[in-house]
Amino acid sequence: MTTVATGTGLGPLLRGWREQRKVSQLELALRADSSARHISFIETGRSRPSEELILRLAEHLDIPVRERNSLLLAAGYAPQYAQTALDDPSMGALREGIERLLTGYEPYPALVVDGTYTVVAANRGIAMLLDGVPEHLLAPPLNAMRLTLHPEGLAPKILNLREWRGHLLHQMERQIALARSQPLRELYEEVSAYPLPEPTGPDDREDPDPYPYFALPLRIEHEGHALSFISSISTFNTPMDVTVAELAIETFLPADPATVKYLQSPGG
């Protein structure tokens, strides 16, 4: 996995993000309407940029909102972005909107996770898939990656486990490269070390699906039925709060008619 250079001051932090993004000082200066000389002076500590320039540089380097606050603090400025707990009264409209979205998506599975895959909300479609998962994995705080890849979790039920596991680990690697997150790195090290259990259902090669997929499906067994889902992840546009910036809504679209029929049946 790629790592980002670290340092205690603004200069090392900015240089680390610039090198991580593989952007030269000149290219960054052109993007941010500055000069390569000024960028160099900032990175070596010879110049203190304005708050506006720091935010502009962060925008052009696609630095996560949480880390933009770190850049501002390192330069002696106040954080620009609040970090509000989801249960705060000011987040009432957000919580209600999320609940309506998740409920409206039923009977298909959908959930919301934070930046370390802690589940903050889920609908009944997700609860159905978790049937039979041991209580110790369902104790709060629930973690979506741990629930999915743990050998006592969903992993034994996933019919294309090796493919889906590889997809999830690659997704985490990309996130670690984009955002410096020690908790996320620790989670990756934990779940990537889980042994691969043997699936309880038929292997894809022995039971090929008759429907062509337009994206890698999650194929999972539920009460003797092979269900197929295509996952879609949504985030909030132009977030102004760290908590909101790190939320992701994942919905699972049925990938074949058999899955639609099963989920919409009274016993599904």
Rank of each mutant, 00 (worst) to 15 (best):
V65F: 07
P79K: 13
T84R: 04
T6R: 13
L218Y: 04
G16S: 13
A155K: 01
V23I: 15
A144T: 02
L30I: 06
R219L: 01
G201P: 00
G9K: 09
L130M: 11
L168N: 07
D207N: 05
V23H: 02
H136T: 06
R174M: 12
V113P: 01
W164K: 04
S90W: 08
A258C: 05
H150K: 05
G76E: 12
H170F: 14
D131N: 08
A248L: 15
A85I: 12
D203F: 03
L101W: 09
G7N: 10
D207F: 04
E173K: 12
R124F: 02
P208R: 09
I249D: 03
V65D: 09
L154Y: 04
A32C: 10
L263A: 10
R174S: 12
D241F: 02
P254T: 09
G115S: 08
H150W: 04
E206H: 10
I63S: 11
E186T: 09
L129G: 08
E52D: 13
P183R: 03
G45K: 15
E43Q: 04
M145R: 00
Y108C: 00
R124V: 00
E52H: 11
L218G: 03
T148S: 13
D207T: 01
I249L: 15
L161G: 00
R146I: 02
A215L: 12
L161Y: 15
F214W: 12
T6V: 14
S24N: 04
M1P: 11
A248K: 15
Y262R: 13
E67C: 07
Y188N: 01
A58C: 08
P239M: 00
S181D: 14
P183H: 06
I54N: 12
S228H: 10
E246T: 06
N160H: 07
V242W: 04
P183I: 09
P79I: 01
S24T: 15
L169F: 02
A29T: 05
L71S: 09
D62H: 11
P156K: 07
A121K: 12
S192T: 13
P210K: 08
S181G: 11
L86N: 05
N160V: 03
L187H: 01
F236Q: 07
T8F: 08
L149I: 01
D87T: 14
V112K: 11
E96F: 14
R37H: 06
P134F: 05
L253D: 10
Y117Q: 09
P89Y: 03
G268W: 12
P239Q: 06
T3C: 07
A75F: 11
T84K: 06
R21A: 13
P183E: 08
E198W: 05
L53N: 00
H225D: 03
Q25T: 03
P156D: 02
P266A: 11
L28P: 01
K157F: 06
R15C: 15
G267M: 12
P109W: 00
